[in-house]
């Protein structure tokens, strides 16, 4: 069952990568990369059990944190949080 779950996670990762390559907009690609990162955390935990080495869980924890920081970093870099005028949206309502 562990092997089957590992294979399923790998299939999901491949599908996410396909979306990342095809993805029409920039945001589709970031979404695919985010999903790929989450699946990597799952894959690392599963592999730790498959190989009988629970130390992999520490790597999984660190990877979860790095994944979050990378996604938020890419989004900040694309200059999207409207830091200058946070109240511009409410006037339109």
């Amino acid at each position: 069952m562990l092997i089957a779950a590992t294979l399923a996670v790998l299939v999901a990762m491949i599908l996410a990568i396909i979306r990342g390559i095809v993805g029409p907009t920039l945001y589709d690609r970031i979404l695919a990369v985010n999903m790929f990162g989450t699946k990597t955390v799952l894959l690392l935990s599963l592999l730790g059990f498959v190989m009988g080495r629970p130390e992999f869980l520490d790597i999984a924890i660190v990877y979860a944190l790095i994944n979050f920081i990378s996604v938020v970093g890419v989004l900040r870099y694309s200059g999207t949080f409207e830091l200058k005028q946070p109240s511009a949206e409410s006037k339109e309502e």
């Binding site: 069952m1 089957a4 779950a5 294979l7 399923a8 299939v11 999901a12 599908l15 695919a32 999903m35």
Partner: peptide, 22 residues
């Protein structure tokens, strides 16, 4: 639990390819 999780993983992967927009 692992079986359900695997099914949901693949479902999400199919969904990210099938759904029409971001």
């Amino acid at each position: 639990c692992l079986l359900i999780g695997s099914f949901l993983c693949i479902s999400g992967g199919v969904g990210i390819l099938r759904f029409p927009d971001f």
